[in-house]
Simulated scan of single mutants.
Amino acid sequence: MIDHAHDLASVQEATERLLTAAAGLDNASVARPSRLPGWTVGHVLAHLARNADALGNVLDGRPMYPSAEARDADIERDAPRPLDVQLADLRESDAKFRAHGTAPADWTRTVELRNGVTDVAARVPFRRWIEVELHHVDLGIGYELEDVPADFTEREIDFLAERFGGHRDVPSVGLRSSGGRVWTTGGGAPGGPIGVEGTAADLLGWLAGRRDGSALTVTGGTLPALPPL
């Protein structure tokens, strides 16, 4: 069962971890490349702030972004700002998002995200948690997938395994973590079943497009190429 109140609290904790870590940077760091191709650290911070606004829009029943072009333009506009401005904006936008999340609402309702994707409202806080944890890693400032909370890692693997389940480009794949958890995904493309085993962090990294999967053990075929998120 989805517990949106728990996830909102987790969003706050994750955001505070990120803000504390990023406070140790300087203005020159904002212009350095992040781990995301073509994006600086400033782009990642700007995206995190604007995504909080966007998910607040979703909870209010408004379009997540006016358009894809507007989303990209806002990130480009905000990316070069000084570090203190970036962090103040992220803190404020996070507080506004959580205020949306604590307002009385029907959490069973269906909401619309980008590109026609829909979800239950109660899962929106978890989607924000995903953004904060993974983009903290993307900043490349010492926070790794091994550092994210274990319960987040397993839930995000659950989420991504479901997302790729039956995907027409992904053969049947059985996932097993070194801790003994198992998942299945894919199944839409010919081939398989393929076995993929590794640490939960490495499984998450591969599923989320943050690692190439070279640390995983693969049996029954080759490691499939996953579609972009």
Rank of each mutant, 00 (worst) to 15 (best):
D3N: 12
V11N: 15
Q12S: 12
E13I: 03
E16A: 02
L18A: 15
L18E: 15
L19Q: 08
A21V: 15
A22S: 14
A23R: 15
L25P: 09
D26C: 11
D26L: 06
N27W: 04
N27Q: 05
N27T: 03
A28S: 15
V30Y: 03
V41Y: 07
G42H: 03
V44M: 07
L45T: 06
A46P: 05
H47M: 07
H47A: 01
L48Y: 12
A52L: 15
A54Q: 13
V58P: 06
V58A: 04
L59S: 08
L59A: 09
D60C: 05
G61E: 09
M64Y: 04
M64S: 02
Y65C: 13
S67D: 13
A68E: 01
A70C: 07
A70S: 11
R71I: 10
A73T: 02
D74I: 04
L83M: 01
L83N: 04
L83K: 02
D84P: 00
Q86V: 13
L87H: 06
A88W: 06
A88Y: 05
L90P: 13
R91H: 07
D94V: 14
D94K: 15
D94L: 14
A95I: 10
K96G: 10
R98K: 03
A99I: 10
A99C: 09
H100I: 10
A103Y: 09
P104H: 02
P104M: 01
P104K: 03
P104C: 04
D106W: 02
R109T: 11
R109C: 10
R109D: 10
T110K: 13
V111R: 04
E112D: 09
E112M: 08
L113S: 02
L113G: 02
L113T: 02
R114M: 07
V117E: 15
V120F: 11
R123I: 12
F126Y: 14
F126A: 07
W129K: 15
V132H: 08
H135D: 14
H135K: 14
G142K: 03
E146S: 12
D147G: 00
V148H: 02
P149N: 03
T153P: 09
R155G: 10
R155L: 13
A161S: 12
G166L: 01
H167P: 11
D169L: 15
D169Y: 08
V170L: 04
P171T: 00
P171D: 00
S172K: 00
R176C: 09
R176M: 11
S177N: 09
S177Y: 09
S178D: 14
G180A: 13
G180R: 14
R181C: 03
R181F: 01
T184K: 08
T185R: 04
G186I: 01
P190R: 05
P193C: 06
V196A: 02
T199A: 02
A201C: 06
D202T: 06
L203D: 08
A208K: 08
G209C: 03
G209Q: 06
R211F: 12
L216M: 10
V218W: 10
G220P: 09
G220M: 10
P224A: 15
L226H: 09
